[in-house]
Amino acid sequence: MGILKPGIKLFTDEGLRIDGRRPDQLRPIKIEVGVLKNADGSAYVEYGNTKILAAVYGPRDPGARHILLPNRATLRCRYHMAPFSTHERKSPAPSRREIELSKVIREALEPAVIVEAFPRTVIDIFIEVLNADGGTRTAGVTAASLALADAGIPMRDLVAGVAVGKVQGILVLDENEQEDMYGEADLPVAAMPTLREITLLQLNGVLTEEEFYKALELAWQGINQIYKLQKEALKKRYAGAEEEE
C-alpha cells in the first residue's frame, strides 16, 4: 500500500471518487460469453478499464501422466498480463506475481467446479489481462467462472469477485489502480453467492475488525450485483439456442 503523495486527491469535495463514483458503487461492467471460437468455453469481462479475456479447454487428456489424479480432474490455471496491459511494457515472461495469482485464482475456482465428474483429465483455464486498471484477479475469477460454465463443465455455482479498498479512511468498492496504489488497504473477495461461500479472501494493508466486517459486507453487495450480470450474460449467450430448440 502506497503512502499518499502530497497533492493527490482521491475524493472530491462532494465525497465522490476520482472517477465520479460513490464509495459503494461498482465501475461499469461489461460481460460477454463465448467470445473465442477455438476454446471450449470463453468469456470477456470489463470492470471499467480492466479488461480480461478467459478461455477454458477441457476436460481433456493432458499428455503428461504425472498431472492426472485417479478420482478427479486436475485444474490448471494460467493468469497472464499482456505486455501492453500496463503503462510500462510488461515482460511477457510469467512473473512471481502472476505465478502466485494463477494459484490463488485456481484455488478460488476449485470449490465451485465439480471436478469429481472427470477423473484422470485436466481442465485448463487461461486468463489474459488485456488492460490492467486494478482488480485484475477478481475480474479474472469472474471471467474464468463464466468460461467454465460456457464450456459446459458442471459447477456448484458461478464465482464472482470484487475488491474492496480503504482510501483515505473510507471503504470503497471495486477500487481502480489509483485507489489501489495510494490506498491503505485492499481486500479482494470472490464468492459463490447462492451457496454464500467465500472462495477467495486476501487482505493487503491494515483494517480494524469493524472495518473488515464492513468491507466484507460491501464486497457481498458488489458480488451480488456482478452475479446477476454473470447470469444475464450466460442467458443472453444461450437465448438463441432455446428458440432454435
Partner: peptide, 10 residues
C-alpha cells in the same frame, strides 16, 4: 416446464 438456467440456480 422449460426455462434457461445457469449454474447455481435453485
Amino acid at each position: 416446464i422449460r426455462k434457461i438456467v445457469s449454474p447455481g440456480d435453485i
